[in-house]
Every structure is written in C-alpha cells, then in structure tokens.
Design a protein around this nucleic acid. Structure first.
Lengths: 353, 353
DNA sequence: GTGAAAGCGCTAACAT
DNA sequence: ATGTTAGCGCTTTCAC
C-alpha cells in the first residue's frame, strides 16, 4: 500500500552530481563546501523534499538530539510548567523532548530512564534529589549528562536546580510569626517518593524551632494534591480539637481546599485562620479571597535545566545557577491571629459535631 | 574522560558463545531460540547490563517506537491532561512520547512535525482540525499514521477524536434557555489558529438561532485563557451597557475570571448573572460558588489517541471511536434570570462609572 | 534452530 | 574542497 519512498542522501547526491559526503557537509558543515556547490545542493535537497533520517544520523554521530525528562505527573501545574519551560528552550536549539511520567514511583522512574537511555537521549532531566540507586548507577555508566530539578544545589552531590525549602520556610514562618502566630498546622503531600515534601516539613520545623515553637505530629497532615483532600485535611484538623491559628499548605491546590472548607465551616479567613500556599498558581491572585503564597520560578527552572543540559552536551563548561529566587506574595488569607494562641476557644466552638 | 564503553550485542553474543543474530532473536523473537540457549542469553544480557541501542534498532527496523505529539501549549490544563493520558497509555506499550508545543502557531506546528517525522516517529498526535496544508502533505508523504484530537470525527476528513461542540452548545444553551434566559454573552479564546473556538461559537449561535435568539457581535468577546482576562471581559461587558443574563465561557479559567470580577462589581451570581464554564477543571467544584460547567473527557481523549495510533502502527484494523460523551454539570453559578430579559434595568444600574 | 552476511542511511577519517 | 571507505549497532534474509 505504502509505496512512497523516502528520499535519501544518495538521491540528492546523485541529482547534484556529488558524493553523499558532500551533501552531508553542505547540510551540517556548510563552510566546508564551496559556495556554488553548496547552494545547488541545498536547493536540490529542498526541492526534492529531502530530510535526513534521524535514526541513521543518530547512529552515525552517537547523538540523538533529544533530551529526556521524567516527571511525577503532568497532572500538576507545577510540573507542566517546568516541562513547558524546558521544551521551549530545547526547541530553540533544535533538540527534541522525550517525556515520561513516573507517578511518584522510583521503580517506574528507573525503567523510564533506562528506556530513554537506550534511545540515547543526550541529556536527562529528573525531579528531586532522591532516586533509585540503580538510576544513579545507570546514569553514571552511560555518561549522559543529567540534572535534578526542584532540588536545591546544596542538598545533593548531583547537579541540581531549584529553590531552597529553608528559604521558603523562613519566609513563610517568619512572616506568620511576625503577625503573632504561635500555633501552626502543616498540610502537605505524601512524603513517599517525594523528597521535596520531607524537605519542606524539615525546613518549617527548623525555623519553628528557632522560635521555640514545636509542631505536634498530629498537626502535620499528608494529603494528595487535590482541592478535596485539602478540605478533608481541614475537617480532620477541626476534629482534632483546637485549630492552629495558621496553616501552611504544601501547594496552592491544598490551600484552596483548606480555604474552601474553612468557609463552609463558617470560619473566617484570616480572622479565625491564616493560610499560606506554595507556588503562586494562576488562581491564587484571583480568588474571592486572594491567597497569600510563595512564588516559585517554574518555567525558569525548566529553562535553566535546558541550558545546563545543552551546555554539558556540547561540552561547554557550564556552571549551575545557585539557589533560585522565591518570593512571598502577601494577599488576603493571612492576618494577625484573633486570639492568643494558647487558648483558641473560638476555634473549638466551631468544631464539627 | 568518558571511558565507559556501552556494551553491545556482539559482546553478549561472544559471552554466550552464539552469534549476534541469535542474541537478537532471543530478545525480540524468543520462540525462535531454543529454551536453554535463550535462557542463558537473556540472563547474560541482564547481568552484563546490555540494552539495545535505540538508534541502531530504529535504523534496522525502520521503527522508532516513539510517538510524537504537538500541542498548543502545556500551560493549559486541558492539553496537559490529554498528554498525560496519551503518555500513560503509550508507556504500557513501550512507546516513548516526543512532545513539542506550537504556541497556536501553524508554522511552528509544521516545523515541529517535520522534525518529528525526521526522527521517524511512528505516529503523530496533533490538536484540532485546521492545520497548515503543508503539514497534511508532509503527513501523507511520510505515510505516518496521525490523529487529530479535540476535533469531532464528523468535522474532518482526517482521523479525529473529540467531542462535538454542537452537543456542548445544545447542552449549555438548552439548559440556560430552560431556565428562562434569552440574553446571552460569550467569552471565549481567540479564534486565530484555534478552530475549536470558532466551532464553539458557531455551535452556540446555531442553537440560539433555533430559539430565535440572536447573538449581537459585541456580545462575543475574545480573551486569552487567563483569570485576569476573564475579569477584563466582564468589565467590558459591563461597560457596553445592559449585561446579558447569562454568559457562556470558553473554558473554566475564563469563567472563574468572570465570576471573580462579577463579585467585585457587586453582582450576585446567579441572581444577576448566570455563568457556565467548559471543561470541568479541578477547581470548578470547589470554589466558594461552585461552577456550572461541561465535563469533557480529556485523559480519555489522550488514551484513545494512543490506542488509535498504536493500532495503526501495528497495522491492526482500528476504528475510531465516535463522538465522545460530554456532560453538563450543574452547580451554583446558574439559575433563573432575575428580571425579564428585555429590560435588564438592574444590571444597568450596576454599570461602572 | 543457528550462523554468515548484507544492509538500514548517515557521518567521519582518510585520502587526494 | 571533494570523493572513497569504513563503520555506527542492530535486524533480517538466506543458507545450512
């Protein structure tokens, strides 16, 4: 059925009356071919609809002109934006993006990485600083440049690009503490296979420590990143008794859920409860009650990852960017606590039956 | 520096005391190799850390085991979910995903497609039913199976998977009309290079026609898909005089913007204004005022696209799914219009200074 | 069932 | 500046 034959370099060479090698040069190293000849070849190639076979070129050059990226899931705006930034930047350098998701499963991540390496990706982007040891072994064995994103440089022996959770925690807790809060809750993602969550909790705890505030274990709730689960977390907190005066959320989606549920429960924000998100998603600024959150550089991370990888691939000396800027965006979900933290009577009154 | 040598099929063959051909068979056509030999080869391959070179295999088989996808942008949850569905399904069949974005630019889409075809993708997913003619020519010339998503089958001569905007319009307008609305506004994306928008407008207009309702040109506003722009559209509508009693938004993000701005303007929803979104994004159900919207099957579309492409690639006879189900989800942003449509005095009173 | 040999389409040394 | 010659690492006839 499929009788069309793809035209190849030999066809162009024959038509131009030169050798295939010359055609190859005209395309890849134009300066090595005399002007007139080059022009003729290029025009012919264009007219004949010639374009090099990627597999053959990859085999001959040992370069695929493709970069791989493995993320937990695309169903999370943060990763989507990182990938978007990465892809846009790769595009400019004529690199393709191979994408796969791991579902937060290190085993799946490992398998995906192996497949990508088999495809000879020239570089690989992964998320976070904690991975299957076999992955690192594989990466090292292959010699393929890779970079970890959403991992602060100082936290990993491997090349990493991201912001520092300590900075975020200082910003958030410092601000809340300045407002007068002493009683905190933390609603974050699950730590299994997500080192960013563990790091953030650790950072928050550390800063809290410096203020002589302790975070009770039952004040740290783990939920999936959905609005519903955020609401569910608030219910649980209410059920547990006196509500903290401030809740720090692991991302904006959870924060939305918290806010939504709080309002359903008749709690006023920030009167009864202050809430801080993380990520500054598009919706944060545009809710009826605009969310106080931390702006993180998502597409910037993707861009820098591309930069780094491309640099390494081309054997340029590249230095990793340092920690990236984050910024506290104060909006309307945070304020002074209504009552002295030690006796949150008001919150208790609103406890669900 | 990089002295590690990747181990290849000859190495395994040598170690196993067989020919490379047999190793190849053991891996790709196990039944062609005697059990004992096969076992030995496979184990050896595993231990030696052998994995086939993708480029070489692709060159020899004329198959890349990769599928390409070109979407307008990842910075839009809809496309992100489609890709997510696509990738997950490809993964199961051991296919890789090559991803690129076009920024709603047909020229860029074309260039991306060409590069992907050079890389010998085995299939290609594109979005919508309107593309650069050169793209179709290229696709046909290459013989590579492709599929259009977010395009209803009946609207294109090319294989397409999506829902029908007529159905959506009937659902939305029918419901609103049943509530008593006669005065409509439409806030959608830009039509340039986005045939879905034009189709939706057309569909809405058609259904409105059947109710003898006309849609004034200044009641159709085009905005980018951001919350801000949605709010901006409402301002414009307010500025233009009597507000429609119902606004149909091109997606949930715009709907959020409309709601948010309406509330800032002191309009009550749905008392003064009914709003319907499109897409049923995660937030739709969880806003202080849950959004009435239309649920569209996003990851399902990705999954079916993968199915179709994989089928075509393996030369199975595949039939495209018919139109896909959409569902009106009635929540709290829609209700009966407050006043008779012909004299929306109330709305006028709220016009901005 | 297994091996030998011939490519797949390109690039890169090596000549000239 | 250009042509010739070898591969790149795998799969796939074709023999045996």
């Amino acid at each position: 059925m499929d009788t069309r034959k793809r035209i190849k370099i030999d066809d162009v060479a024959a038509a131009a009356g030169v050798s295939p090698a010359t055609v190859s040069r005209a395309i890849n190293n134009p300066h090595m071919v005399r002007g007139s000849v080059r022009a003729r070849i290029l025009e012919l190639a264009e007219n004949m609809g010639y374009s090099a076979d990627g597999a053959a070129r990859a085999l001959a050059t040992r370069r695929s002109q493709a970069v791989g990226a493995i993320i937990p899931t695309l169903d999370n705006a943060m990763f989507a934006r990182i990938i978007d930034g990465l892809q846009r930047h790769l595009y400019k350098s004529n690199y393709m993006l191979l994408l796969a998701s791991s579902d937060y499963d290190p085993e799946k991540e490992f398998r995906n990485a192996r497949v990508m390496l088999e495809r000879s990706v020239d570089g690989l982007m992964i998320v976070g600083a904690v991975h299957d040891p076999r992955l690192y072994k594989l990466l090292e064995a292959s010699g393929v440049p890779f970079v970890q994103t959403l991992a602060p440089a100082r936290a990993s022996p491997h090349p990493s690009i991201g912001y520092d959770s300590d900075t975020v925690a200082q910003l958030v807790v410092g601000y809340l503490r300045g407002l007068g809060h002493r009683d905190f809750g933390l609603v974050v993602g699950h730590t299994a296979f997500n080192d960013r969550v563990a790091a953030y909790i650790e950072s928050v705890r550390k800063v809290l420590d410096s203020f002589d505030i302790k975070l009770a274990p039952d004040r740290v709730l783990h939920r999936q990143y959905t609005v519903e689960e955020g609401g569910n977390a608030l219910q649980q907190l209410v059920r547990q008794g006196p509500l903290p005066s401030a809740i720090i959320a692991g991302n904006d989606t959870l924060a939305f859920g918290l806010i939504h549920e709080a309002q359903l429960q008749g709690l006023s924000i920030p009167g009864d409860l202050s809430i801080v998100g993380l990520g500054d998603s598009e919706f944060a600024a545009n809710l009826p009650r605009p969310l106080t959150t931390v702006r993180t550089p998502k597409s910037e991370i993707g861009r820098l990852a591309a930069d780094y990888l491309l640099g390494r691939i081309e054997n340029r000396t590249v230095n990793l960017p340092g920690e990236m800027q984050v910024e506290l965006v104060v909006r309307s979900t945070t304020g002074r606590p209504a009552v002295a933290a030690p006796s949150p009577a008001k919150a208790r009154n609103k406890t669900l039956a």
